[in-house]
């Protein structure tokens, strides 16, 4: 399965990854090889097999009581933020 340059560019766009011109052929090559490699799965007969989304069978989701356990710690959390003002995280202007 050979991916085209355009396919790599569209995957990178979907994943929001800037690739340099030099990187594109590298990923074109390695992703194509990975897809060939995982193509081996086609051979397995899975006609009546359910997909396994979770490694432990039979468990179900626990439900949390509806209680507020958190305090306002935005000042501390925003110490990691590249750009904030008045408690808001800032990004370049989004136009809708």
């Amino acid at each position: 399965m050979a991916l085209t340059r355009e396919q790599i560019e569209s995957i990178a766009a979907l994943a929001r990854l800037e690739l340099s011109a030099a990187e594109v052929p590298v990923y074109q090559d390695s992703l194509s090889r990975i897809l060939d490699f995982v193509g081996a799965l086609e051979r397995a007969d899975t006609a009546s097999v359910a997909p396994m989304a979770h490694p432990l069978p039979g468990l179900s989701q626990r439900l949390r009581p509806d209680t507020v356990t958190e305090q306002d710690r935005h000042a501390e959390y925003q110490q990691n933020a590249p750009l904030t003002a008045a408690g808001l995280y800032l990004v370049p202007r989004v136009i809708e």
């Binding site: 949390r64 509806d66 209680t67 507020v68 356990t69 958190e70 306002d72 710690r73 935005h74 959390y77 925003q78 008045a86 408690g87 808001l88 995280y89």
Partner: peptide, 23 residues
């Protein structure tokens, strides 16, 4: 609900920005 669907943060309307956003 009093708290969020996946966290213990309050859901009250009108709090200062990000005061009710936990990790």
């Amino acid at each position: 609900t009093r708290s969020k669907i996946f966290s213990g943060s309050a859901t009250a309307y009108g709090a200062p920005p990000n005061a009710q956003a936990n990790l």
